[in-house]
Nucleic acid binder design. Structure first.
Length: 549
DNA sequence: CTGACTTGCGCC
DNA sequence: AAAGGGCGCAAGTCAG
C-alpha cells in the first residue's frame, strides 16, 4: 500500500504482486489512522516517503504497524551502494529524494505546509528502487538491508513515542548528592564553587575561569607545568596540588552542563526521556540521535532510568560485537572459534594466538581502528598469521580507502568517497590536478581515510547485525504481549549501537529475555547463514538501568 | 549580535 | 614524538 499526502487527505494505492499499483483510495486525513488500523488486520506493507512524516501521528492515534518501506532511507542506501547500477535510480526527482531530510521536530501536524516531500512521487520512486534491487547481483543482501532499515525506522519512532521511563526525583537526588543544591541565576552549585576556590588558590590565579581552556592552559603554564592541552588525561600525568581539584571540577562540571537540572527540564516530560533517534544518521549505518545526547547518556545518571511500578527493564548488550562481526563477514574459522567463548579475547588466548587477554584486545582494536604502531602494531603480524582472513579483510579495506575507492558492508552499504584533493581523479584536463597541499599532507589524509574505510566495513556490518536484532526483537515483543497499546506491552525503550533496553511487565520479563536471545540468534543467521559465529548477550533483568552491566 | 569553528568529554 | 573509527553537545572563541 503506497500512501501519499494530498491536500488534507491521503491517497492510498494498493500494490499488486508485480509492483504496479492498482486501485486508489482517497482517505480524509482525520480518518487515516482508523484506515491504517483496519488494513493492519491482514498483512500489509506501507510504502511511504519517510517514516518520520507518518508514523508519529499514527502512534499518537494508537496505531502500530507491522511493516513499511521507508523510501527515504532505502534511497539513501541504494544511491551509495556499489551493488547497484546507479543509472536505474535516475529520474527527474532523484535530486529531491537525495535531499530529503527527516522531520525531527515534535510537530503534531500530520500535514506540515510546503513540505518538499509532498512534491515527490512515492510510486515512481518505489518502482525505480524495485528495478534497481532486482538488477543487483546482491539483491537478497540489499533487500535484507532495506527491510531492516525500514524496520529500524519504525522502532525509532516507537521508542520516541513510548520514551524511556525516567525518574526526575531520583535524578535530582543524584545531582544534589554530587553537586549540592542547585544554585539560582546560573551560578555554580556549592561543590563546584568550593573546588573553584581550591583550584584558584593552588594555581595562584584568583580570577581563573577553568571552563576556558585557553585561560586554564595559561594558568597551568604560569604555575610551571609543562602542558600543551587541558584534557583530563593530560592533567592526570601532572604532579601538582591543583590537579585533583581540577579533575574533580571537570568531571562534575561536565555532569552539570550535559545532564544537570537543565537537561532534566528540557528532555524529561511526564516521567519519560524522549530523544529523537535517527536511523541511518551515521555514514556507517549506525543511528544518530538528536535531543538530550541520547547515545551518550553517562552511566553516572542511568540509575534515574527506573522501570514503572510492576514493570522491569530487560537490558541486553552484545559482548564484543564488532570482532565477532569481523569473524563472520570474513568467514575466518579460527577467529570464529575464538568467538565461541563468551569472552572472545579470552578465546584468542585459549586458541594460542596471543599470550594474554590484554594483548588480544589491543591487537583486535588496533586492527579494526587502524592503530598500526605501538602495542597494537606489534601484535599485528601474529594476528595476521593466526587470523588471515579477518585481518586480511580490514587490511584490504584500508588499502582500498587509501586508493580512494569505495568499500562496502556485508549487506552492501557503500562508503562515501573522500572529499580531499588527494583522491580526486582528473576530470578535465584544464582542471588543476590537486588541491591537497604538501605531499605529507596528502599522505596523512590518505592514511586517515584508510583508517576510516577499515573501520567502516566492521562498524557498518555491526550496525547491520544490530538492526536485524532490533527488527526481529520488535516483532517478537509484539507477539509476546497480549492486547493494548504499545506502551502497555513489552516494548523497546532504548537502543545504543549494541545494547537494548526493553520495558516489560514483571511477569513477562523472563519471556523477554528468551526473545532477546532468540532475536540475536536470528540476526546471526540472517547475516552469516550457517557460518558458526556466536553472539552471546549479557542480559540483566533490573528495576533500574543503573543496575545493569 | 549571530554563526562557524575549536576544545573537551560523554557514549559505542 | 605520537601516530585508532563513529557520533552529539555545551561552552569558549573568533570573525563578520
Amino acid at each position: 500500500m503506497v500512501v501519499r499526502r494530498a491536500e488534507g487527505a491521503v491517497q492510498a494505492r494498493e500494490l499488486a504482486d508485480d509492483g504496479t499499483t492498482v486501485a486508489g483510495t482517497l482517505v480524509p486525513a482525520d480518518r487515516f489512522a482508523a484506515f491504517v488500523a483496519g488494513r493492519e488486520r491482514a498483512p500489509v506493507r506501507w510504502v511511504w516517503d519517510d517514516t518520520t512524516r507518518w508514523y508519529p501521528a499514527l502512534l499518537e492515534g494508537g496505531v502500530r504497524i507491522e511493516r513499511c518501506t521507508d523510501l527515504r532511507l532505502a534511497h539513501a542506501v541504494l544511491r551509495r551502494s556499489p551493488f547497484v547500477d546507479q543509472s536505474l535510480l535516475a529520474g527527474e526527482q532523484t535530486a529531491g529524494w537525495d535531499a530529503l531530510q527527516p522531520v525531527t521536530a515534535a510537530d503534531p501536524a500530520l500535514f506540515p505546509v510546503a513540505d518538499p516531500a509532498d512534491r515527490l512521487d512515492p510510486v515512481a520512486e518505489h518502482e525505480r528502487q524495485q528495478v534497481a534491487l532486482a538488477a543487483s547481483v546482491h539483491a537478497q543482501r540489499l533487500a535484507l538491508l532495506l527491510a531492516a532499515e525500514s524496520s529500524g525506522a519504525l522502532v525509532a519512532a516507537e521508542m520516541t513515542h513510548t520514551g524511556l521511563p525516567w525518574r526526575a526525583d531520583v535524578h535530582e537526588r543524584l545531582l544534589t548528592g554530587l553537586l549540592g543544591p542547585r544554585s539560582s541565576a546560573g551560578g555554580r552549585p556549592p561543590v563546584l564553587e568550593r573546588l573553584l576556590g581550591e583550584i584558584r588558590a593552588a594555581l595562584g590565579a584568583p580570577l581563573l575561569n577553568p571552563d576556558s581552556p585557553g585561560e586554564l592552559l595559561r594558568a597551568l603554564r604560569t604555575a610551571g607545568l609543562p602542558v600543551t592541552d587541558t584534557r583530563s588525561w593530560s592533567l592526570e600525568q601532572l604532579d601538582h596540588p591543583a590537579v585533583p581539584a581540577l579533575l574533580e571540577y571537570k568531571k562534575l562540571s561536565r555532569l552539570l552542563q550535559a545532564n544537570g537540572w537543565t537537561w532534566l527540564e528540557t528532555w524529561v516530560r511526564d516521567g519519560r526521556f524522549r530523544p529523537t533517534f535517527l536511523p541511518g544518521g551515521v555514514v556507517t549505518g549506525r543511528w544518530a540521535s538528536s535531543g538530550g545526547g541520547a547515545l551518550s547518556v553517562p552511566t553516572q545518571i542511568r540509575p534515574a532510568a527506573v522501570a514503572d511500578e510492576g514493570w522491569r527493564f530487560v537490558v541486553a548488550d552484545v559482548a564484543q560485537l564488532e570482532p565477532r562481526v569481523l569473524a563472520g563477514m570474513s568467514a575466518d574459522a579460527a577467529m570464529a572459534e575464538a568467538a565461541r567463548a563468551t569472552d572472545l579475547y579470552q578465546g584468542m588466548v585459549a586458541g594460542g594466538a596471543v599470550a594474554a587477554r590484554a594483548e588480544a584486545k589491543v591487537g583486535i582494536l588496533g586492527a579494526m581502528y587502524g592503530g598500526t604502531r605501538g602495542e597494537s602494531g606489534r601484535m599485528m603480524p601474529r594476528l595476521a598469521r593466526r587470523y588471515p582472513r579477518a585481518i586480511g579483510l580490514v587490511e584490504e579495506a584500508a588499502r582500498a580507502g587509501e586508493r580512494g575507492e569505495v568499500v562496502h558492508t556485508l549487506l552492501g552499504r557503500g562508503s562515501p568517497l573522500p572529499a580531499g584533493g588527494w583522491a580526486r581523479r582528473p576530470v578535465d584536463p584544464g582542471e588543476p590536478p590537486d588541491d591537497g597541499g604538501s605531499a605529507e599532507d596528502r599522505d596523512r589524509a590518505r592514511r586517515a581515510w584508510g583508517r576510516f574505510t577499515r573501520n567502516f566495513v566492521v562498524q557498518g556490518t555491526g550496525a547491520e547485525w544490530a538492526l536485524c536484532w532490533l527488527a526481529d526483537l520488535r516483532n517478537r515483543l509484539w507477539r509476546l504481549g497480549g492486547a493494548g497499546a504499545l506502551g502497555r506491552r513489552p516494548h523497546l525503550a532504548f537502543f545504543l549501537h549494541d545494547e537494548v533496553v526493553v520495558h516489560a511487565p514483571e511477569h513477562l520479563a523472563d519471556a523477554v529475555v528468551a526473545e532477546v536471545q532468540a532475536a540475536a540468534a536470528t540476526a546471526g543467521r540472517l547475516l552469516f547463514g550457517s557460518f558458526p559465529v556466536d553472539f552471546p548477550l549479557d542480559v540483566a533483568v533490573v528495576g533500574s538501568w543503573g543496575d545493569a552491566g
